[in-house]
Design a protein around this nucleic acid. Structure first.
Lengths: 205, 205, 205, 205
DNA sequence: AATGAATGAGGGTTCATTCAT
DNA sequence: CATGAATGAACCCTCATTCAT
């Protein structure tokens, strides 16, 4: 047991470091040597924990999704109001994003880097997550066609995922404010909301 | 004259093919040999037109920006209403995106792949474009603080740029519809707009 | 300890083989593949021992100088007579040359092939060695101006270094004879020395 | 005739420029493009005057030898005193060297770069020149064995040819002084000559 | 459980040379 | 005569991965 948990702890550390390296240089430009240097584990030593560079990426992405979907479940489970549910989802997404910038950048940016079974598994999780969002939006606009929902879903994901390219807490304010604002933007639109909506939605989270 | 235009034509063809290759495999996984195969030009022959793989990427990105900014200017020049201006901008962006998917994917996805002077020049153009959008949003919401504008600007860009990950005209409908919808989503928000906004904005373009 | 010495031994073997290849084909025409073939180490394996082709050349040249300067020190340390000191220097130089023909050809011939910091370091060592010779000549001719010493120093180096272009022990006799003769030539001149000088200087070494 | 002479003039110009480029960068590192840039002739244009890079080197080296051997003949033809003949030879060699530094550096340094028939022809000329020197030394020391002459000959060549590595007229004085000094060094040796010999030999040339 | 040593398979780039015009 | 355009053959170097220890 001890053994196992020590192994897991080290693997976790490796994944963290790898995510940081991938985030900084991009998956393909990052080398296993970079990760070796970042972790302090020898080049060949890494292969005791991980089968390949591919798997490293896969594990990072999988863990991201697991965590995000888990915490989402626990947030949504006892809320029924669609608008509040959406607010919680956006908050959950952005908060996780902000506290795991490296991992999320990797998840957003390196979607195509995976191949084979790894890719399929991650794609499936992604689809599941999308479906959750789409259903949620469906509840908000029961009359919307599935094409409309699809477009809206991915518009929302675009808004949220794109933050890895620009968001920096020190300059752009805390995540919660961002989440509140994005929620409002998505539900009520840009201009008018700035005036009155701001207060209406601060209690979303 | 003939000479020059033939040279330019071939360079254009090379850039097009290269963009396709970069879009499919990603900049780093794509090899100059791939581009050689895609263009029918020999490996070394490419270097008659381009100094390096880096420059290839730079030229693709620069041309994207030039075209997009130019056509934007000609669309906005005689329109003053802020809402209509925004609609035109979104339409311009998405239409160019949809008809140059490869190039725009490269532009959106490979922002960090450039280095040195190339990177700086593209970054500058990107900043200019962002400023245009930010100003436009400022006209829509005169009381908004610059942080708010910044967040809104990049939220909008997120919505628009993310489409390279999901949008396919055959499945998701024509760009103009997408543009109309996104404009509405951004200005009035999701749910309500589905009911009435659709018609109100179809004449934006 | 074992590890380190085995590593060093292999590096030494590589440097030896590389020197032979560089000597035969010249630095620029020699390829890393040639060296790989000559050593039996795989192409990429070489890069475990050496950072670049440049460094290979640098290491060869540096080791040459280190050895030659060290053995010179130990030869000259307890000799004060200027003529004998010169004889010992010439003997040391030529003997090392003859038993490390490849390395010395590389050192003599590929002076300009190095660049950057590598070049500077080797140039410095070269300057140090020249200064030693110049000082020694200064002791022989106290009234000589520095220009004279400079010309004489490089004339002597010319005589000595040029041998990589023609000297072959089997045809041109043992190095010691060559050294004795060059010493005499340099100190007493050509023609007269042939008659009597030969015997006078054979005991120099 | 006009045609021919214009052709020759241009070829000469090309050889001059090429020699400069080869001297600066070394034969192998110099590119035909460098020569194209240095001459102002287009890359393919050069091939109208020259069959290959090899031939370029060959022509440079051949012309060097022709000139040097010709002028040597005209200097030696009516002098019989062996010492004076040697002085004239050294003067001729060094003077030509100093006024054609690039060409002579190429001749001295790139001896091995030639291959096939080109190499053979140059080698032959080199042998002829060596034989001249050797004969001349033989006349100075009739009792010397051929091994002795060989060693002395190449020692002299070493002194003379090596100057491409160090000699700069502004710092090291005019060639004629250098020639006088080298002649004296070779005939009488270093130290004593500095005192009295200097004057005795200044009239050698 | 961990690593030093080694390698095969490319990857970007260069360069002498050619050929149609 | 001269050149713009094009190419095949290398070349140096990198990197994910393995394996003996």
């Amino acid at each position: 047991m001890e053994e196992q948990s020590r192994y897991d702890a080290k693997l976790t550390r490796i994944l963290r470091a790898a995510a940081a390296v991938f985030a900084e240089k991009g998956y393909h430009r990052a080398t296993i040597r970079d990760i070796s240097a970042a972790t302090g584990v020898s080049l060949s030593g890494l292969y005791y924990y991980v089968r390949s560079k591919d798997e490293l990426l896969y594990l990072i992405q999988r863990q991201c999704f697991e965590t995000i979907l888990e915490s989402l479940d626990s947030e949504l489970c006892d809320v029924t109001d669609p608008e509040r549910r959406l607010g919680l989802l956006i908050g959950n997404h952005l908060r996780f994003f902000a506290s795991n910038m490296s991992e999320m950048k990797v998840l957003s940016h390196e979607a195509d880097a995976l191949s084979g079974d790894y890719a399929k598994e991650i794609t499936d999780q992604k689809r599941e997550y999308s479906a959750t969002v789409s259903d949620l939006l469906g509840a908000l606009a029961p009359q919307a066609r599935s094409v409309d929902l699809r477009r809206a879903t991915f518009s929302l994901f675009g808004m949220m995922n794109w933050i890895y390219t620009w968001y920096r807490p020190d300059r752009d304010g805390p995540v919660n404010v961002l989440a509140t604002e994005m929620t409002h933007l998505f539900l009520r639109g840009f201009a008018p909301g700035v005036q009155d909506g701001g207060s209406r939605y601060t209690n979303l989270r």
